[in-house]
Design a protein around this nucleic acid. Structure first.
Lengths: 214, 214
DNA sequence: CACTACATACATACTGGTCGGTATGTTGCT
DNA sequence: AGCAACATACCGACCAGTATGTATGTAGTG
């Protein structure tokens, strides 16, 4: 992932701060995803991008700030795109959730790597309060997004009225993250596949009996 | 946790290899639980036990071997005592599972710390294959223990026949670990309490309708 | 429009501390 | 005596962070 990858076609562009910053962020995310935050080496990130240490410390105050930016500008965006935006559509939230869960990547490196959000949370939450708060915020937005969609489904008549949207939302996140963790440790895509099947089955049980087909 | 804590009453005992080893293991477990394996410092462990580096390297080949021993001799034992042994009793497995889940520690440091097994698995599985295999073995024994108990419940007539014991067992582990992770990041006992409530509710739904009370 | 001046955007070399590991010495137990 | 069970001192690699130098874009001025 060299710098000049998306640079303007005009030969070798030299200064492009936005692009440099973005490259660093993406490479840092990859390295952190692969090795964990503490084991992530700045030199590895620099080697992957072709950026030098001076540039990195120009754009970020240090490793910690780089980690914070990964949470705010990469992980939060991924969660938004994958979960929140689809749920804002007007369709049946249960169906949307099933589709989202089913869209979970089954690629070996994704199974091996687990969930970037949960990975960072598990590693850093007990060690660094600033990290924890940022990650907790992502979890919160995620949970509220699902809960809001479920509430909408309840007023639309597709979601059972007897269940608490907030608790149901948390339950879904817990099972989902739990299965991803199990599959990551087992390093077995079948664990994840079975998990998705069971989650989908559970999601179906949230519908009012005799609602939309699937 | 000084060495002479449980030493024989006869004043200052000096040589006690079994005891020394056990002290190191426990202190190492605590330190790893607190800081993660990679951030765990040998010096911290030595300071906590009063043991010197020479003794540590006499009993263990190095940090990695110490970590392996933690998995095999501490975490595996904890899982066995908390989950497997109770499930070997002849009672209703659902009731036993409910009791086990309800017995989850709500102490702040337990909420903050999360599940030792899952912590290590999340951190080390992608980095070290030897670690991963040992941890996967613990997960497997855990999962099989629950599944076996569920099967027994099915033949005894207390557990619904229509559900797959293996998949149900994995589902339980996934939700349980998931909620513990969420509570760890949120640093909120109430997240864990709500999780336990919901897990218990789900566990009840596994019984054949009109079975034992609770 | 040319020329300067300054802030931005990098590059390079080095440092200081941490920490796992080791080499070697010493003491207690049988 | 001799091996097991430690104790002490030290090493060297790794790595985040920094000090300092350099080049590029750009705004302001006559």
């Amino acid at each position: 992932m060299l710098l000049r990858k998306h640079s303007k076609p005009s030969a070798k562009r030299q200064r492009n701060p936005k692009h440099t910053r973005e490259c660093l962020l993406q490479a840092a995310f990859q390295e952190v995803y692969k090795s964990g935050f503490q084991s992530a080496g700045l030199d590895t990130i620099l080697a992957a991008t072709g950026v030098t240490k001076g540039a990195l410390y120009y754009h970020f105050d240090g490793k910690e700030a780089l980690g914070h930016a990964i949470v705010d500008e990469v992980i939060a965006v991924m969660t938004r795109d994958k979960w929140l935006l689809p749920l804002l559509g007007g369709g049946d939230p249960i169906e949307t959730l099933i589709n989202i869960v089913r869209a979970t990547s089954l690629r070996p490196e994704a199974v091996r790597g687990g969930c970037p959000l949960n990975n960072l949370a598990q590693e850093m939450s007990p060690l660094d309060e600033k990290f924890r708060k940022r990650l907790a915020r992502v979890f919160q937005v995620w949970q509220e997004g699902i809960a809001t969609a479920l509430r909408r489904g309840q007023t639309q008549g597709t979601v059972r009225r007897d269940l608490d949207p907030d608790e149901t939302s948390s339950f879904l996140i817990a099972v989902y993250e739990g299965y991803i963790s199990l599959a990551k440790n087992a390093q077995d895509v079948n664990v994840l596949k079975a998990g998705i099947r069971n989650i989908v089955g559970w999601l179906r049980s949230l519908r009012v009996p005799g609602s939309s087909t699937d």
